[in-house]
Design a protein around this nucleic acid. Structure first.
Length: 512
RNA sequence: GGUCCGUUCGUCUAGGGGUUAGGACGCAUCCCUUUCACGGAUGAAACACGGGUUCGAUUCCCGUACGGACUACCA
């Protein structure tokens, strides 16, 4: 019989959630939903010194933006609360003590200076790995070296202490990672990790095992940076006697810099001009800010689609997936092993695809909003026309207004390079004729009519239309490039087109 | 340094003992077109290296190189 799949995303609230973390959350979500299970969020705030106000809210908002909100979380608790480790603090000590009793952990009273001295001593002795381990612990102040009475005394006197895991001297730890297969590590290379800190808080290692166990977590899906400590975690499950319910591990490949090597960092984004965070971040206290994909104009579903493909693929040649389709297609086996370089061009491409698939109605609302910011009020009908006209030439929603703005505000000038090449006597003749003709036109001025009339004007002046089209565009739009000109004319209407042509005729000097 | 993980076009990847090594982004060319873009078509572009195993290896094994992660009373 198989029990319900329960996975968790367990970020620590130390700042804005990195895009790699968002992808981890997404894969957790996809796996949970695919398996018909639950996706939980647990805040790992056991390091009180690194707590950053607002970080929790940021995590919540980021996940909500992408539509991958957890089934259980601090804000939406299930039966396994609390969902913040700081609030679970009282329960950890008993588990650490249980390990001490079983002989799998011990008290250590060494000060920071003593630890430093130990490392220096070992380094001087050319020990390859200067660490607190099965060898060096015999030289340190802990309940393994001190007498029982002295340990009791120290404890009773309130002397600060930590509880360390006691690594077996010679043992092979194996774990079957869902992505990497069997990974084997010898305990001789592991150190006696601190389980309980002197402030009474557990470290990540203890807390995550205890909580995963208590919360019924079946699969631990996390970044590759955790792989080296996974053997310790396996050992901890053994120490507790929880092997039977130990979750399966899956260590995700890292997100790397677009150029060069190494993990993707905030600096890379700043340097290359793209965000590495889902949404904007601002730390009120420090003034630290970070740009988000959302505010840069990335669509939630496009960004999600892009993110899903950073390290995973469906195995066929489809590229566009809604969240529901991702859930359907997702499988852990199809996650790659190697690190993935971040490619912002692909993100843009996804955004374009999703933008073009939106209806003119939806697109119109973006245009209306941005136009409003420029003090231009547009009605739905005309905004939709503008949207239809420019939707094929944009990457971000904000581009819609940028590309169509010229329809609604007076021209600020003409592209003089184009003018130098294309503005000539022939163009002036045709435009003069055309301007007069349409000014008196009272029929329906649609694209076809506009074009037919323009053709007629050219013919009347015995000039080939193709010769002057660029000049016509320049006169009406100020630019040598843009969307379909006759559609532009239709939106503008006879009076506005005529007016603009007249203005161009008055303004632009004829060269030839 | 040590431990662990990884390596198919520039990038994301499919594939897997015998293939013209497939797709996507980007790039180039052409078509469409009054322009730019969109769209369509085409093209350049990859199995890190060395040994095995095998009739045959890009695919399996072992090394090497390169890259990465970890190496805290941080997660």
């Amino acid at each position: 019989m198989s029990k319900e799949v329960r996975v968790r995303f367990a970020p620590s609230p130390t700042g804005p959630l990195h895009i790699g973390g968002v992808r981890t959350a997404l894969y957790n979500y996809l796996f949970a939903k695919k398996m018909g299970g639950k996706f939980l969020l647990r805040i790992e705030d056991t390091d009180q010194t690194r707590f950053v106000p607002g970080a929790e809210e940021y995590i919540k908002e980021s996940l909500e933006w992408l539509g991958i909100s957890p089934d259980e979380s601090p804000w939406n608790p299930g039966d396994c609360g609390p969902y913040r480790q700081s609030e679970r603090k009282p329960s950890y000590m008993q588990y650490a003590l249980d390990l001490v009793e079983k002989g799998h952990a011990y008290y250590a009273f060494d000060t920071a200076e003593e630890l430093e001295a130990m490392r220096e001593r070992l380094t001087a002795a050319r020990v390859v790995q200067p660490q607190y381990n099965s060898i060096s612990r015999t030289q340190m102040k802990n309940s393994l070296t001190l007498s029982e009475e002295e340990v009791k005394e120290r404890l009773a006197s309130g002397e600060p202490y930590v509880i360390r895991a006691k690594m077996p001297r010679k043992e092979e730890v194996r774990l079957n990672d869902m992505i990497r297969g069997w990974v084997m590590v010898h305990t001789s290379s592991l150190d006696d990790k601190v389980l309980m800190k002197s402030d009474g808080m557990p470290t990540y290692h203890l807390a995550n095992i205890v909580d995963d166990h208590l919360m019924g977590i079946t699969h631990v899906i996390r970044g590759e940076e955790w792989l080296p400590s996974a053997p310790l975690h396996v050992l901890l499950y053994k120490f507790f006697g929880w092997e039977d319910t130990m979750p399966q591990f899956a260590h995700l490949p890292l997100l790397l810099k677009p150029n060069g090597n190494g993990k993707l960092s905030k600096r890379d984004g700043d340097k290359l001009g793209f965000p590495v965070f889902p949404i904007n971040w601002e730390n009120q206290e420090t003034g630290e800010t970070a740009a988000g994909f959302r505010e840069q104009g990335y669509l939630d579903d496009a960004f999600l689609n892009f993110l899903a493909f950073l390290g995973w693929n469906p195995g066929d040649e489809r590229e566009i997936f809604s969240l529901e389709e991702l859930v359907e297609a997702f499988s852990m086996e199809r996650i790659g092993k190697s690190g993935t370089k971040f490619d912002i061009d692909k993100a843009k491409w996804y955004n374009e695809q999703y933008l073009r698939n939106k209806s003119d109605q939806e697109l119109a609302s973006y245009i209306k909003e941005d136009a409003g910011k420029d003090g231009v009020e547009l009605n739905q009908e005309v905004a939709e026309k503008a949207a239809a006209l420019v939707k094929g030439r944009v990457t971000f929603p904000a581009d819609l207004w940028k590309e169509s703005k010229f329809l609604f505000v007076p021209l600020t000038g003409f592209d003089m390079d184009v003018a130098a090449k294309k503005w000539n006597a022939d163009a002036v003749k045709v435009l003069t004729h055309y301007s007069k003709t349409i000014a008196g036109f009272t029929g329906t001025f649609d694209a076809e009519t506009a074009k037919a009339m323009l053709g007629a004007s050219a013919e009347a002046e015995e000039i080939k239309l193709g010769k002057v089209m660029q000049a016509v565009r320049l006169a009406v739009t100020g630019s040598g490039a843009g969307p379909d000109l006759m559609e532009v004319f239709a939106i503008l209407g006879t009076q506005e087109v005529s007016k603009r042509i007249q203005f161009a005729l008055d303004t632009l000097p004829v060269i030839a």
